Amino acid sequence: MRTTNKQNKSQFIAVDSIAAELGAVMEVAKEISLAAANAKAIAFRAREKAKGFQPITDFINELAKETLELVNDINENSLLLYQLTVNEYRTADAYRKLEQAAQMAEGAAHGKSIQARVEAAKIKMQASRGQFRWHVSQLLNQLEAVMRPARAARVIAANSRIEASQAGEYMQSLQAVAESVDNAAQIIHDNVQRCRSVLSIIVIAE
């Protein structure tokens, strides 16, 4: 049971770490949205010189919105994961105490009744673990979904550089936008990858 307590502690740490990474992803997604707004303003001033850049700003903004929506959903699931970790800890602790009581009451007249409660607690604990594992797999799927807009943002950033190179005196400003989108997409990718690694370790530990 000491292993279970250690495992629960690891789960608490993992869920906290995921929450921190997701908070960082949200901030970066907001930065992408701001970059899109700045690019739109520059493209508007540049007119014909940045004609090809104008639709790109809409794509960048949509990707930022999509990322924020996905991360909001993931945050809800990670909060639920925290609650499930608490529940699993409590059910495991109850099972441990009942198991100890059953060992102490072995051979006593009421021993069988305690054993029945031990079995019921064990079933409850296993159900809690099953719920936790299922939500971990759901969260892994959601994190994979966040990777898609991050990958798309990097492709758009590459296209943005090409369009920016034809924008005359506005080239540097638009290329700076392309760089900020590319960097933000890389940060999102890295943060989400760390979340996935943490979850994978939990799955293995389970």
Rank of each mutant, 00 (worst) to 15 (best):
Y95F: 12
R96C: 06
K97P: 03
K97Y: 05
K97D: 10
E99A: 08
Q100I: 06
Q100Y: 05
A101T: 06
A101L: 10
A102K: 06
Q103P: 02
M104Y: 04
A105R: 11
A105M: 11
A105D: 01
A105H: 13
E106I: 04
G107Y: 12
G107H: 11
G107F: 09
G111R: 07
G111Q: 09
G111K: 08
K112P: 06
K112R: 11
S113F: 09
S113T: 14
I114H: 09
I114T: 08
Q115P: 00
Q115E: 12
A116W: 09
A116Q: 14
A116L: 11
R117P: 02
R117Q: 15
E119A: 15
E119Y: 04
A120M: 09
A121P: 07
A121T: 04
K122W: 05
I123F: 05
M125I: 03
Q126S: 12
A127K: 11
A127M: 03
S128H: 07
R129A: 10
Q131N: 15
Q131D: 10
Q131M: 14
R133E: 13
W134E: 13
V136D: 02
S137G: 00
L139G: 13
N141W: 02
Q142P: 00
L143D: 03
E144I: 02
E144S: 04
A145E: 13
V146M: 10
V146G: 01
M147G: 03
M147K: 00
R148D: 07
A150E: 03
A150R: 06
A152P: 03
A152I: 15
A152D: 15
A153F: 13
R154I: 02
R154L: 01
V155Y: 14
I156W: 11
A158Y: 14
N159C: 04
S160M: 15
S160R: 04
I162S: 01
E163M: 12
E163I: 13
E163C: 14
